[in-house]
């Protein structure tokens, strides 16, 4: 491969005390690729995103963004040393993140939330930031809510503002951690629509989600996690029709009842594992 992946984690391991929550995970996402991360609760999906963004640096392993290792910098003499906090912030600004709980700042308006980084981090003039911020809000369909405080917005609107806030910094990669899980069912669609539009424009995205339908439609690749490891990493169409792993198949069997548009996946041939022949 000539160009480095947009983002790559190698050997990502995360320990909290005695517990190993992430166990040597390798993941690479190419520019323009949409990867959905599926997996049962507690399998380490959020932890993976937090390690990839260095919000919580991994206990072991490395993250490269566009070929540059997060948290490290190369001196002029060629040696690599731990990066300064400022350098890490700069590296991290290539990644945008959208959280399950939106995490908007309640004392700032929708526009204020979107322009905060442009003004404070990028040092842009307020008028320029305002123009860009309004553009971003328009892109998520919320131009008319620019002056509204988060408390006056619905969950779906808040999450769309949060997406606009991440987009405003022009990140190379967007990470989503269950962006619709905190939403009332009737508000899920408007957020997924924004994300689908991003996927169609080939925004590089890693999306942790329980929305199987979204994953089936928007993802190029599916990463299925369980127990802190990647169990299966496959093109989306293959994953949903012919998963290679028994655990993937079980997960799909359990969750696909919510989505009737997909035909049932084929059970992988696990002749050596006949003790699993209940269910179905």
């Amino acid at each position: 491969m000539s160009t480095p992946p947009a983002i790559a984690g190698r050997g990502l391991t995360m320990r909290f005390g005695p517990a190993t929550v992430l166990d040597g995970v390798d993941i690479a996402v190419a520019r323009g690729e949409v990867v959905c991360v599926l997996g049962p609760s507690g399998s380490g999906k959020s932890t993976l995103l937090r390690c990839l963004s260095f919000l919580t640096p991994p206990s072991a392993g490395a993250v490269h963004v566009g070929g540059e290792q997060l948290g490290m910098e190369t001196k002029s003499d060629g040696t690599t040393v731990p990066a300064s906090a400022a350098r890490l912030r700069h590296q991290r600004s290539r990644i945008g993140m959208v959280f399950q709980s939106f995490n908007l700042w309640p004392h700032l308006t929708a526009l204020g939330n979107v322009t905060e980084g442009l003004v404070q981090v990028r040092g842009e003039a307020r008028t320029d930031a305002r123009t860009q911020g309004l553009e971003m809000l328009a892109a998520v369909g919320l131009a008319d809510k620019a002056d509204a405080y988060p408390a006056r917005l619905s969950g779906g609107q808040q999450q769309r503002v949060a997406i606009a806030r991440a987009l405003a910094m022009k990140p190379e990669i967007l990470l989503f951690d269950e962006p619709t899980s905190a939403l009332d069912p009737e508000l899920v669609g408007e957020v997924l629509a924004v994300m689908e539009a991003l996927a169609e424009r080939h925004t590089t995205m890693i999306v942790v989600t329980h929305e199987i339908a979204f994953a089936a439609e928007a993802a190029d690749r599916i990463v299925f996690m369980d127990g802190g490891r990647i169990v299966e990493d496959a093109p989306a169409d293959r994953f949903f029709t012919t998963p290679a792993e028994e655990r993937s198949w079980r997960f799909l069997e359990r969750t696909m009842g919510r989505y009737l548009g997909l035909s049932r996946p084929q059970r992988p041939d696990m002749s050596g594992m006949s003790r699993h022949d209940h269910e179905v």
């Binding site: 600004s93 709980s101 995490n103």
Partner: peptide
């Protein structure tokens, strides 16, 4: 909520900015 600080760190605000802003 801690998530607000996470969001601020992802945007690139430094600790002093996070505190003040």
């Amino acid at each position: 909520p801690a998530g607000q600080v996470d969001a601020a760190r992802m945007i690139g605000l430094n600790p002093v900015q996070i505190f003040i802003r």
